[in-house]
Simulated scan of single mutants.
Amino acid sequence: MSSFHQATTPDSPWVQVLDTQDMDQHALAQQGWALQYEQLSPGQFKGRIHQVQLPEVTLLREDTSIALRQRGRLDDSVYGFAMALQDSPDLFFNGQRVPAHAIMCGKGDEVDLTTPPHFTLIAVVVNRSLLNPLWERMYQKPLAHWLEKQLVLPTTDIKAQNLRDLQLTVLDQASALAYRQHDPQALRQLRDEILMEWLEALPAQVDTSELPTLERRKKLVDRACELMLGHADEPLSILEVCSRVGTSRRKLNYCFQDVLGTTPIKYLRSLRLNSVRRALRQAAPGVTIQDIASHWGFWHLSQFAQDYRQLFGELPSDTLHKR
């Protein structure tokens, strides 16, 4: 299923419902956002995007079939609030494990989300120009400073379930109204209703005392990833990575488990295989699988082909022929 209702003016609402079979296509289809996905678990990707654009607010439901790391940005002028439709112990947001019934929120200048297989995300993205005056009216004080960060905040199971139910209902109702485009007042009422529900689900007090420690762990993981990708054709050993980032192997493993829920070796292999897949799909005529595999440090082609097929469900030659 695929449908898109285009806005008739820049301020008109629009709706997108898109079934995808390609991870990169799925990321690019999320209008106005710059995202890149990496596949972390075996299988062929299947996804669905249900996106509704209202005045100064975007509503989203995203379904994905495999474990992913999603990175990128939305926009400096927006704030996002998101939640898993079904709780999972293998969900991480900006280096923080997401417990049951938790809200992921923060400024849209950075997105870093690691999701499990068979995952559904619900979210609302709101412009600062709408959120700031609404926040001041609700709480009689300026927009909270902690919203400039990316945080995982607790809420109650009742508030979480009410929020999930209302988000799905409003997505369907707003989609129907946006297609007809004859009742802007009803759309604004739906927008305000769901936005208020998200804000009222936030805790009254937010403790950010642990954030500096979490940010240091994430920076260490990000630095290690940069180093490993920077030596793609001759992969560094874990001991070499530890030496260059100034940490022990034990601490590096701990930080990767804490930030991404996996080990450095396993994550790097997935990252390199994803890079090979993108290169195969963009390969110029005459470029061979061996050329690309060796560039990313895969020298034993039979083992590489086996690992590639295990992760993506097809051989490298299948990917190359699809380009």
Score class of each variant (00 low, 15 high):
residue 1 M to V: 06
residue 2 S to E: 09
residue 5 H to M: 09
residue 7 A to F: 15
residue 9 T to C: 07
residue 12 S to E: 13
residue 13 P to A: 05
residue 14 W to T: 02
residue 16 Q to V: 03
residue 16 Q to F: 01
residue 19 D to A: 14
residue 26 H to T: 01
residue 26 H to W: 15
residue 29 A to T: 11
residue 38 E to W: 07
residue 38 E to C: 02
residue 38 E to G: 00
residue 40 L to A: 05
residue 44 Q to R: 14
residue 45 F to I: 04
residue 47 G to L: 09
residue 50 H to G: 05
residue 53 Q to C: 13
residue 55 P to S: 14
residue 56 E to F: 13
residue 56 E to T: 08
residue 58 T to I: 07
residue 60 L to Q: 12
residue 60 L to Y: 10
residue 64 T to L: 08
residue 69 R to I: 11
residue 77 S to I: 00
residue 80 G to I: 09
residue 80 G to Y: 15
residue 81 F to H: 02
residue 82 A to C: 03
residue 83 M to I: 10
residue 84 A to T: 04
residue 85 L to W: 08
residue 86 Q to T: 10
residue 90 D to T: 10
residue 91 L to F: 08
residue 93 F to A: 04
residue 93 F to D: 01
residue 94 N to Q: 10
residue 94 N to T: 00
residue 100 A to C: 03
residue 101 H to R: 01
residue 104 M to F: 01
residue 104 M to S: 01
residue 111 V to A: 10
residue 117 P to C: 05
residue 117 P to N: 03
residue 120 T to Q: 08
residue 121 L to K: 09
residue 121 L to M: 07
residue 125 V to A: 03
residue 127 N to L: 08
residue 132 N to I: 00
residue 133 P to F: 10
residue 135 W to M: 02
residue 136 E to M: 05
residue 137 R to C: 08
residue 138 M to R: 14
residue 142 P to Q: 00
residue 143 L to H: 10
residue 148 E to D: 12
residue 148 E to R: 05
residue 149 K to D: 09
residue 155 T to L: 05
residue 156 T to G: 12
residue 160 A to H: 09
residue 160 A to P: 00
residue 163 L to D: 02
residue 166 L to S: 05
residue 169 T to D: 10
residue 173 Q to K: 14
residue 178 A to V: 02
residue 179 Y to G: 00
residue 179 Y to C: 03
residue 184 P to N: 03
residue 185 Q to E: 13
residue 190 L to E: 07
residue 191 R to A: 11
residue 192 D to M: 13
residue 195 L to N: 13
residue 195 L to Y: 13
residue 204 A to S: 14
residue 205 Q to M: 11
residue 206 V to G: 04
residue 212 P to W: 02
residue 212 P to R: 01
residue 215 E to T: 13
residue 218 K to V: 04
residue 218 K to T: 13
residue 219 K to A: 15
residue 220 L to G: 06
residue 221 V to Q: 06
residue 221 V to W: 08
residue 225 C to Q: 09
residue 227 L to P: 07
residue 246 G to A: 06
residue 246 G to M: 06
residue 249 R to F: 07
residue 249 R to M: 14
residue 250 R to V: 11
residue 253 N to K: 04
residue 256 F to A: 04
residue 256 F to I: 09
residue 258 D to S: 15
residue 260 L to P: 03
residue 261 G to P: 07
residue 262 T to A: 08
residue 263 T to R: 10
residue 268 L to Q: 13
residue 269 R to V: 03
residue 270 S to C: 15
residue 276 V to H: 01
residue 276 V to A: 00
residue 276 V to P: 02
residue 283 A to I: 04
residue 285 P to D: 14
residue 289 I to M: 12
residue 293 A to I: 05
residue 300 H to F: 05
residue 301 L to G: 00
residue 302 S to M: 03
residue 306 Q to A: 07
residue 307 D to Y: 09
residue 308 Y to F: 15
residue 313 G to E: 06
residue 315 L to A: 14
residue 323 R to G: 14
